[in-house]
């Protein structure tokens, strides 16, 4: 019995393969309006369920509680509350990040849901659950109707 065990799969005889898989993801009716408002007006919109009176952020076409079609758009403002957060110290390859990144779920008053985004213009030690944060938008000429049109959220003054 050999005492030398293979511990790196790349040292076994193998065939290296990869999957080429490119997609476009259609935004849909609700997504179209949501990202258009972010891009053109710097507004975060929700969609309201007429039956449950719930405002969904991000907006969608249907209510996940009662299955009704959502009607009516509501501007939920750009100030939210940190529902939870984490400080990521490594990247997707497991390498240490030079600057840790703060990810959070930001909820908006009166709305169900919120946005997953990064928190900037502060240090990890200062971020707390329940703190108020404001959306920081990229300048309008840089916006592409993407979640990254919001640069990050920063602690509210």
């Amino acid at each position: 019995m050999s005492l030398d065990k293979i511990t790196n799969p790349m040292h076994v005889r193998h065939w290296l393969g990869d999957m080429e898989a490119d997609y476009i993801y259609t935004l849909g009716v609700a997504g179209e309006r949501f990202f258009k408002e972010i891009k053109e007006n710097g507004k975060i919109m929700g969609a309201k369920c007429p039956r449950c009176n719930i405002i969904y952020v991000p907006p969608r076409m249907y209510c996940e509680k009662c299955f009704a079609k959502l009607e009516g758009w509501v501007d939920v403002g750009t100030r939210g509350v940190v529902h939870t957060f984490t400080v990521a110290k490594i990247d997707v390859d497991g390498k240490k990040l030079q600057k840790p990144e703060i990810y959070a779920l930001i909820k908006f008053e009166g709305a169900c849901g919120g946005l997953i985004h990064k928190i900037g213009e502060t240090t990890p030690e200062k971020v707390k659950i329940g703190m108020k944060v404001d959306a920081v938008f990229k300048p309008s000429f840089e916006r592409k109707a993407s979640i990254n049109d919001i640069k990050h959220f920063k602690p509210a003054e």
Partner: peptide
């Protein structure tokens, strides 16, 4: 909504 943020 989420993937464009990147990260682990």
């Amino acid at each position: 909504l989420n993937r464009p943020l990147g990260g682990h």
